[in-house]
Structure formats: structure tokens, C-alpha cells
């Protein structure tokens, strides 16, 4: 069962390659407010692990990594 969330911001990085999607996510994170939910769309497979690792390492909350049709959705909550 997928956790329920409503994204405050959607970063659509589909079609860009490593490290593009992660850089886009960090940019969005920096301009976000605490408790904002940021959702990253990516078609780059490396990003699936890389972005999830960054979210955990930076001390934020990883809500989940979901397989969508033809892309991944990686969702985080800004807690720091």
C-alpha cells in the first residue's frame, strides 16, 4: 500500500541524465520550505538510487520510490 502524499512541488526531470535529475532535486529542495513534499520524476535509472541516498543522507524523509509508467517517482519531505 502506497503512503498517501500530496506534492508541494513537482520536479519533472524526465529525459535528463545523471547528474541532472539530482541537481534539479537539490535546487528545488533549497528553495522549499520545511515540511514541503517534493516529488521528482525521472527516467534515469541511476537517479533512482542516487536521489534516494541523497534524501536519506541529507537527513530528510524519503517518502518513497515508486515505479510509474515509463519513469520513477521519488518523493521526499523536507525535514531539515
Amino acid at each position: 500500500m502506497e503512503k498517501q502524499f500530496t506534492a508541494t512541488k513537482v520536479v519533472d526531470a524526465r529525459g535528463t541524465f545523471c547528474p541532472g535529475p539530482l541537481m534539479e532535486l537539490i535546487k528545488a529542495y533549497k528553495s522549499a520550505k520545511t515540511n514541503d513534499i517534493i516529488s521528482l520524476y525521472s527516467t534515469d535509472t541511476g537517479t533512482k538510487r542516487d536521489a534516494a541516498a541523497w534524501i536519506s543522507k541529507s537527513g530528510n524523509e524519503l517518502i518513497g520510490v515508486f515505479d510509474r509508467e515509463g519513469y520513477y517517482e521519488i518523493v521526499m519531505k523536507k525535514t531539515k
Binding site: G15, T16, F17, G20, M23, I26, K27, K30
Partner: peptide, 18 residues
């Protein structure tokens, strides 16, 4: 074909992040 940015563009993007 895959629209991969050149190294300067990539570096400029990273400069915006850190």
C-alpha cells in the same frame, strides 16, 4: 540525440547547487 548537456552547462548547473 539524448540531449546530454555539454560539460560547461553541466558544471554551471552544479554551480547553482553548491
Amino acid at each position: 540525440q539524448k540531449n546530454i548537456p555539454d560539460w560547461i552547462t553541466m558544471l554551471n548547473n552544479a554551480k547553482e547547487v553548491g
